[in-house]
């Protein structure tokens, strides 16, 4: 283990002021920051050295200790006392590069001088959040009409979740804290569930609205009338206005799907009329149409 001349690393003299240290550090950090030197292991190594030098010299207490015992770390009995005393010390500020931080970010010299109980532990035994888990859940569209509870098995653990009414296809919900366990008592990750919803109805769907094409007889379209159509909440009678054109769209307010996280609110049900043109007429019908034609209809 070699003594490291932190002053030399930063290219400053022993009497350098705090400003000088800061200035030298910034200058070198800009030059050797790993993100600015892609694929350059030498720069990364240099950056770590600069970082370490700054960690020591920018802290008056550490600097004093370093100046006093640094060179004689192998022999100084006093240094041993310092080693014992350092256990209560906490971390000190500096750059926080974390793109490639590894176990050898700091030198053995640093570790012996300032120990693993202080700065190093504050970095090395950092608490890490657990991994996020992803799961997919298949549901029928009719399963989304009401909120209900369902038990899932994720990584051999059973989790009971509430599936909110109106959840949409492709939608992802987060179950906080049900992902992987954290490291060093870090928080657990989250569980993300993506819904794959199969439309098992005869209706088209867009958000909370439902769509249906409904055939109506030509005579109903012309003269008006009443039809019955099936919705998800039962059969509904609809009045067809006289003179209804092909493609006319009618809205049944609130007869669509429940709106996600909006209790008591529903989408609409849109019915598009397709006027059925008769293709096979009996003799009487044919005569009647001919009579209609003669009226220049």
């Amino acid at each position: 283990m070699e003594f490291i001349d932190y002053y030399k690393v930063l290219g400053i003299g022993k009497k350098a002021s705090e400003t000088d240290i800061k200035k030298a550090y910034r200058k070198l950090a800009r030059k050797f920051h790993p993100d600015l030197n892609p694929n350059d292991t030498e720069a990364e190594k240099k950056f770590k050295q600069i970082n370490e030098a700054n960690e020591v010299l920018s802290d008056p207490e550490k600097r004093k200790k370093y100046d006093q015992y640094g060179k004689d770390w192998q022999h100084a009995e006093e240094f041993e006392k310092q080693k014992k005393a350092r256990q209560q010390e906490s971390g000190f500020g500096g750059y926080t590069y974390s793109g490639g931080q590894s176990a050898d970010d700091f030198s053995d010299f640093f570790e012996n001088m300032f120990g693993g109980g202080g700065f190093r532990s504050s970095r090395r035994s950092a608490r890490f959040r657990g991994q996020d888990f992803n799961a997919e859940l298949q549901l029928n569209l009719t399963d989304t009409l009401t909120s209900h509870k369902q038990t899932l098995t994720v990584n051999n653990k059973k989790i009971r979740i509430t599936i909110p009414a109106g959840v949409e296809h492709g939608q992802t919900i987060k179950i906080a804290g049900h992902g992987g366990q954290g490291v060093n008592n870090g928080p657990a990750g989250d569980l993300y569930i993506t819904f794959n919803i199969r439309n098992n109805t005869a209706f088209g769907r867009e958000n909370a609205d439902l769509y249906k094409s409904q055939e109506i007889p030509l005579t109903t379209a012309v003269l008006g009338g009443e039809i019955t159509i099936a919705t998800l909440s039962g059969k509904v009678k609809l009045k067809v206005k006289p003179g209804t054109a092909n493609g006319t769209k009618v809205k049944l307010k609130g007869k669509g799907l429940p709106k996600y996280k909006k209790e008591g609110q529903f989408g609409d049900f849109f019915v598009t009329y397709k006027v059925k043109i008769p293709t096979k007429l009996n003799k009487r019908q044919n005569e009647l149409f001919q009579q209609l034609q003669e009226t220049n209809l």
Partner: peptide
């Protein structure tokens, strides 16, 4: 994005600088 965050935080580089970098 992580690289930009590191450069901004570590080196106090502003947005114009990040663009140039």
């Amino acid at each position: 994005v992580e690289k930009m965050v590191r450069l901004h935080r570590d080196l106090n580089i502003n947005l114009e600088g990040l663009g140039a970098i």
